[in-house]
Amino acid sequence: MMITLRKLPLAVAVAAGVMSAQAMAVDFHGYARSGIGWTGSGGEQQCFQTTGAQSKYRLGNECETYAELKLGQEVWKEGDKSFYFDTNVAYSVAQQNDWEATDPAFREANVQGKNLIEWLPGSTIWAGKRFYQRHDVHMIDFYYWDISGPGAGLENIDVGFGKLSLAATRSSEAGGSSSFASNNIYDYTNETANDVFDVRLAQMEINPGGTLELGVDYGRANLRDNYRLVDGASKDGWLFTAEHTQSVLKGFNKFVVQYATDSMTSQGKGLSQGSGVAFDNEKFAYNINNNGHMLRILDHGAISMGDNWDMMYVGMYQDINWDNDNGTKWWTVGIRPMYKWTPIMSTVMEIGYDNVESQRTGDKNNQYKITLAQQWQAGDSIWSRPAIRVFATYAKWDEKWGYDYTGNADNNANFGKAVPADFNGGSFGRGDSDEWTFGAQMEIWW
């Protein structure tokens, strides 16, 4: 008995050590931004985005507190085989008060198993909700290839000249389909599951310092038995992507060409959309029709120009041509140079221009935006974070068209359509004006 009692403290210590080691193995990653800002004409900070554009130049032009908190852990490992559990909870508030209630979004919860298939060394099996191989332009917060959501897949299969990845994910639309009631009355209240099937071939070395990635995505509306879509709904579509990445000037340049059809055009990033119906009456549900095509040509990157200068840049042309004439032509160009006074202090400027032409009206909206920021960051790279910055932003815009969301679809035949700025004596778009804002912001990723 005495021997047992003497061994007990040692056993407890060993158990505590094991539990401590396991606790220390938890990975904590994430992203956050928050700050305070004012508008020159009075009131809180207002942000500037061109009507019809899918993004905006973000430096000194973000008006919310946003965070993603990721917890993950390698829960099992034997040799080169392992299982990893990953989670991500995100939230966004308007940064107007101390207490701002919000419903967090559970954006990731997945398990990734590496090297589980003997004859596919280096590959990963995964299932669950996941940010899946996302491609974006940081300076405009624009995701041009992103099929994230609940799904499953097999990735990084070594095929000799590259890595092959296969995945299936889902994005549902509210009110996407109906069941038959009586007297030809349909009640569009059932969600429609939109499935996306993704095939990618990446890391193909085609020139010194250059790699090529090719991808095909097929999206479709997956209806339940005895349900139907509204007439004209976009049932399926394709997205084709080619991306060349070149190492240059201690950074990279990415050149991207994408072509999409029908349900893959509205978001243009790989998620299927077009079966959703915002109104019970299918007579007024025309606005979900996105049959047509999209072409996107994009070049972006980040480079170092000597010891003291870094720069991000982007140039993009996007043409969404829809059968219902509600598409757009959008082109944007911008730069973000950074001058480093010390390894932790810099001055950053961002200059961006957007131009969006309405397919329906032929009119154009444009905006110039310039931001000057003094910044303190954890390192001497344009990617170094955390960063604390004080900024001043000036924007000038001239908008000739907007979307008509007055009333509702039952009493407005133009609901959701592009109209000229002065349509029917109204005021659509943001008109011709300018404004400036100033404030302070922190940004961090880890």
Rank of each mutant, 00 (worst) to 15 (best):
M2I: 09
K7T: 10
V14D: 01
G17S: 11
M19T: 01
S20A: 05
A21D: 08
V26A: 00
D27E: 08
Y31S: 07
A32G: 09
G35C: 03
I36V: 11
G40A: 07
F48L: 13
T50I: 12
T51I: 05
A53S: 12
S55C: 02
Y57N: 12
L59I: 12
L59R: 15
E64D: 13
T65A: 01
V75A: 10
W76R: 09
G79D: 04
D80N: 07
K81N: 09
F83C: 08
N97I: 07
D98A: 09
F106V: 15
F106L: 14
A109T: 08
E118D: 15
S123A: 13
T124A: 15
T124S: 15
G128V: 09
F131C: 11
F131I: 01
Y132S: 13
Q133P: 15
R134C: 03
R134L: 06
D136A: 08
H138R: 03
I140V: 06
F142L: 09
F142S: 15
W145L: 12
G153S: 00
G153C: 11
N156T: 15
A168T: 04
A168E: 15
R170C: 03
E173A: 08
G175R: 01
G175A: 12
G176A: 02
S182C: 01
T189S: 09
A202V: 05
M204T: 10
E205G: 07
E205D: 08
I206F: 12
D217E: 02
G219A: 01
L223F: 12
N226K: 04
V230L: 03
V230A: 11
A233S: 08
W238C: 08
L239S: 05
T245N: 05
K250R: 05
G251V: 06
G251D: 00
K254E: 00
K254M: 00
V256F: 12
K269E: 05
G270W: 01
L271M: 09
Q273H: 04
G276S: 02
F279L: 05
A285P: 14
A285T: 09
N287D: 10
I288N: 04
N291Y: 05
H293N: 05
M294I: 06
M294V: 02
L295P: 00
H300Y: 03
G301S: 00
M305I: 05
M312K: 05
M316L: 01
D319N: 04
W322S: 03
N326I: 03
G327A: 11
K329R: 08
K329N: 02
G334A: 03
M338I: 06
Y339S: 09
K340N: 04
W341G: 06
P343T: 04
I344T: 11
T347A: 03
V348M: 02
M349V: 13
G352V: 05
N355T: 08
N366D: 02
Y368C: 10
A378D: 06
W383C: 12
P386S: 03
P386T: 10
A387V: 04
V390G: 09
V390L: 08
A392V: 01
T393N: 00
D404E: 06
D410N: 06
K417N: 08
A418D: 14
A421T: 10
F428V: 12
R430L: 10
G431V: 12
E443A: 02
W445C: 15
